[in-house]
Amino acid sequence: MYFRQVFLVACLTAIVASIGFTLYQFYFVTPIIFAAEFYEIAESVDAYAQPEPWGPTDGIERSSYTLLANFLMSLAFSLLLACAMIFRGESSVFKGFAWGVAAYLAFFVAPSLGLAPEIPGMEAAELVARQNWWFLSVVMTAIGLAVFAFGALYYKGAGLIFIILPHLIGAPVAESHGFSHPDPNAVMKLTELWHQFILHSSIANALLWLIIGTTTGFLCHKYIDVMTTSLEPNLN
């Protein structure tokens, strides 16, 4: 029963969250990606002609795939959040909000401190190394926050060590970070776009986790706490 209910809660949350996130993204975030791609495409005209793999055509098709990807991502995040929240006991909108804030710190803020959000056309270290560090920082920050929030007073300091450790190890950095575009004016424009992108992606992700946290908390309380309390008298 829990699996089915959690999946239902996550699906409903993902519908709300992906609509909210996609609207903000559509108006404030993807225009910056498109603007950066304009320079990226202009830059790669002279590059070796390679057969392009499939990709959605710009416009409604590309936006639809983004909405689908946003839905699946929100579904995954909500599944994880709901499982953690139910494992810890009863849920509420406020608890959901607190879990959402913690998840924003673990999934966005902590990895972004080492690997800032990037727009197309930026020089970066090897992809697999960056993905590994991203995963490491997310897991360590999540463990650190959990120890800090739920651990005994004596162990709370250990939580801080978990949070800081990935940053002591250090995120992989490219040999030449920045933009490789030959035109200095374009590089200036791209840098400006990048700063806007960091601001708007930070707001977009805060909005995403605000919706996922509170909605998951509300729905878990409505659909799952009821089930748990009705079973408890029979457990003895």
Binding site: T66, R130, N205
Partner: peptide, 23 residues
């Protein structure tokens, strides 16, 4: 993280927006 080009291209804007390492 799915490395296939199709998965990457379909989820491209999402990956950038959520600051997943991309490219």
């Amino acid at each position: 993280f799915a490395p296939m080009d199709m998965a990457h291209n379909a989820a491209h804007d999402t990956r950038h927006s959520v600051a997943f390492p991309c490219h």
